[in-house]
Design a protein around this nucleic acid. Structure first.
Length: 113
DNA sequence: GTGCTGACACAGG
DNA sequence: ACCTGTGCCAGCA
């Protein structure tokens, strides 16, 4: 047949694959914003990265890709917070207020050092 | 084709 | 600190 049946995985858009690959590189206790990922990739924008994470993010450490203001994902706060505490991600937890990421300390610029 | 939506970002008030 | 409007861009009805 003139057709490769080497189709082990569902076809993932190339861009989505790159986004997920970046997400996997984020070290524990660190985060990148959607915009950071897009900029690091040099392609797409924060909304496109957000779409990829919404559709395919479950296969990578999704809690390490966050909004720029450090607020937690609505509907996933509890799960995300569990991960942050477990890996020691810098948080700001005001008394009686919603926990947020301390972006100044947690943000990772993509350089390993 | 047009218009709305969205795991966003930023500037104002 | 919070809310609102605007810019952004791909996907979808």
């Amino acid at each position: 047949m003139g057709r490769m049946e080497n189709q082990e995985l569902p076809e993932l858009p190339a861009y989505a694959e790159r986004v997920l690959q970046v997400a996997e590189q984020i070290p524990p206790s660190r985060v990148m914003t959607y915009g950071d990922v897009a900029e690091w990739l040099g392609e797409g924008g924060p909304r496109q990265v957000g779409r990829v994470m919404a559709l395919y993010g479950s296969s990578v450490p999704w809690w390490r890709v966050v909004r720029a203001d450090g607020t937690l994902l609505p509907g996933h706060e509890h799960r995300a917070l569990g991960h942050y505490r477990a890996e020691g991600t810098p948080l700001r937890e005001p008394e009686g207020g919603p926990a947020r990421l301390d972006m100044r300390r947690a943000r990772w610029d993509g350089t390993d050092g």
